[in-house]
Amino acid sequence: MTFKAIINGKTLKGETTTEAVDAATAEKVFKQYFNDNGLDGEWTYDDATKTFTVTE
């Protein structure tokens, strides 16, 4: 399945996608990506659209 992340950061904005077997796996991938890029913020997840949003 394809999962999307919308990034609303102070220094980084945009979208990225990942292929994962479930939402928990996708969340781990996205959180690692955000940690690697120095992002920290509020997380939400919309199961209907398979979209994570992080707002810094």
Rank of each mutant, 00 (worst) to 15 (best):
M1K: 12
M1S: 10
T2R: 12
F3E: 06
F3N: 05
F3M: 05
K4G: 03
K4H: 13
A5Y: 07
A5F: 15
A5M: 15
A5L: 15
I6L: 06
I7H: 11
I7D: 02
I7G: 03
I7V: 10
N8I: 14
G9K: 07
G9M: 15
G9S: 11
G9L: 15
G9Y: 11
K10G: 09
K10P: 10
K10T: 11
K10V: 12
K10R: 12
T11G: 11
T11D: 09
T11W: 15
L12A: 06
L12F: 14
L12H: 12
G14I: 15
E15Y: 14
E15C: 15
E15I: 13
T16R: 13
T17D: 04
T17Y: 14
T17M: 10
T18G: 02
T18M: 11
T18L: 12
T18Q: 04
E19A: 06
E19G: 03
E19S: 10
E19T: 13
A20Q: 06
V21H: 12
V21Q: 12
V21L: 11
V21C: 10
D22Q: 01
D22M: 01
D22E: 02
D22S: 05
A23V: 08
A23E: 04
A23C: 11
A24M: 08
T25A: 13
T25M: 10
A26F: 01
A26P: 00
A26R: 02
E27K: 11
E27R: 07
E27Y: 15
E27T: 03
K28C: 10
K28H: 07
V29C: 13
V29I: 14
F30E: 00
F30N: 01
F30D: 00
K31A: 06
K31N: 03
K31M: 08
Q32R: 11
Q32W: 05
Y33L: 08
F34E: 01
F34M: 12
N35Q: 14
D36I: 09
D36C: 12
D36P: 03
D36M: 12
N37Y: 14
N37L: 15
G38F: 13
G38Y: 06
G38C: 09
G38R: 06
G38N: 10
G38S: 06
G38P: 03
G38A: 05
G38D: 05
L39E: 05
L39S: 04
D40L: 12
D40Y: 15
G41L: 14
G41P: 05
E42F: 11
W43F: 08
W43V: 07
T44C: 10
T44H: 12
T44N: 08
T44R: 08
Y45W: 02
Y45C: 00
Y45S: 00
D46W: 01
D46Q: 02
D46I: 02
D46T: 03
D47G: 05
A48Q: 10
A48V: 11
T49P: 01
T49K: 06
T49M: 05
K50A: 06
K50F: 08
K50C: 06
K50W: 05
T51S: 04
T51I: 05
T51G: 01
F52W: 06
F52K: 00
F52A: 01
F52V: 02
T53E: 03
V54Y: 14
V54N: 02
T55G: 04
T55A: 06
T55C: 04
E56M: 13
E56N: 06
E56G: 05
E56P: 12
E56T: 11
